[in-house]
C-alpha cells in the first residue's frame, strides 16, 4: 500500500546563503494492508519529515513515494488531493481548522468532502467523539478553544472518520490519559483489522508494542548512514 524507494530529502535555505541541508537519503520501506509500522529514532532523526514526505507535505528530492499506486513525489496537486481525500489519512500533532466551525462538523468533514450523506457523516462523527470522551455539549463549539488533550482527540476522531486504506499517525497517544489511550489503540486495531496500512510514530513504547508489527529506525536513513 505504501512503498518508498530510495527517497531523499534536503532543504535548501536560499535566504541563508543557499545552504543545503540534507536530512534524509536512501529511505526505502514498504507497508502492506493490515500492517502497522512504527518509525523510531531519536528526536530530530527525521520521523516526522518522513511522514510529511509520504503525505506530500514535503517534496521529496529524489526517489519514489508510492501510495496506493500514486507516486506522491511526482504527482499533480489534484492527484495528491484526491489521494488525501480517499486513500491517505494523516493525524498530525496539531489541529488546524477554520475558526468557528463546530467540532462535530470538523470531525465529519472528511466524510462530507467525499459526498457522504450529511446525517450519516454526522452520526459517525458523533460516535467517534463519544468514544473519545469529548463531552457532548462541546460538539457544537469550535475546537480552537479546547484544551490540548481535547484538541488531540478531536484530531484523532477526524483522522478516523473515514476508513482510509492508508493512515499516517504522528504521536496519536501523546498527552492522552489511560482511558483515551485505550480507545485510540483500539481504533488503530480496528483500522488494521479492516486492512488499513498504517505508519505511526509512538514515543509510548508499550503502545507501540501493542499495535505495531514492525519497527523501522529512521536513523538508517540519515544522510551518510546508508553509504
Amino acid at each position: 500500500m505504501i512503498e518508498l524507494i530510495d527517497v531523499s530529502k534536503s532543504f535548501t535555505l536560499h535566504n541563508q546563503g543557499g545552504a543545503v541541508i540534507p536530512v534524509m537519503a536512501g529511505a526505502s520501506l514498504q507497508v502492506g494492508a493490515g500492517e502497522c509500522m512504527a518509525l523510531t529514532g531519536a528526536s530530530g532523526a527525521g520521523k516526522s519529515t518522513l511522514m510529511r514526505v509520504i503525505y506530500g507535505n514535503y517534496l521529496a528530492a529524489s526517489g519514489q513515494v508510492r501510495v496506493g499506486g500514486l507516486d506522491v513525489a511526482r504527482a499533480q496537486p489534484r492527484e495528491i488531493l484526491q489521494l488525501r481525500r480517499e486513500t491517505l489519512g494523516y493525524v498530525s500533532q496539531f489541529l488546524r481548522v477554520v475558526p468557528r466551525v463546530p467540532t462535530l462538523e470538523v470531525v465529519a468533514e472528511p466524510l462530507l468532502v467525499q459526498g457522504c450523506e450529511r446525517q450519516t457523516a454526522l452520526d459517525k462523527a458523533a460516535g467517534l467523539l463519544q468514544r473519545l470522551n469529548i463531552p457532548e455539549p462541546l460538539w457544537r463549539l469550535s475546537p480552537t478553544t479546547f484544551s490540548g488533550g481535547e484538541q488531540q482527540r478531536v484530531n484523532i476522531a477526524r483522522g478516523f472518520a473515514h476508513d482510509y486504506p492508508a493512515l499516517l499517525l504522528d504521536e496519536p497517544t501523546a498527552s492522552l490519559d489511560a482511558r483515551n489511550r485505550e480507545t485510540v489503540l483500539s481504533l488503530i486495531q480496528e483500522a488494521k483489522a479492516r486492512g488499513a496500512a498504517i505508519i505511526g510514530i509512538f514515543h509510548d513504547q508499550e503502545a507501540r508494542d501493542r499495535v505495531c508489527s514492525r519497527v523501522v529506525d529512521v536513523t538508517q536513513f540519515a544522510p551518510g548512514a546508508a553509504a
Binding site: F11, R52, G56, N57, Y58, L59, P77, I80, L81
Partner: peptide
Amino acid sequence: LTDQVLDD
C-alpha cells in the same frame, strides 16, 4: 499543493 508550498 498549498501545504507543500507553505511548509516546504
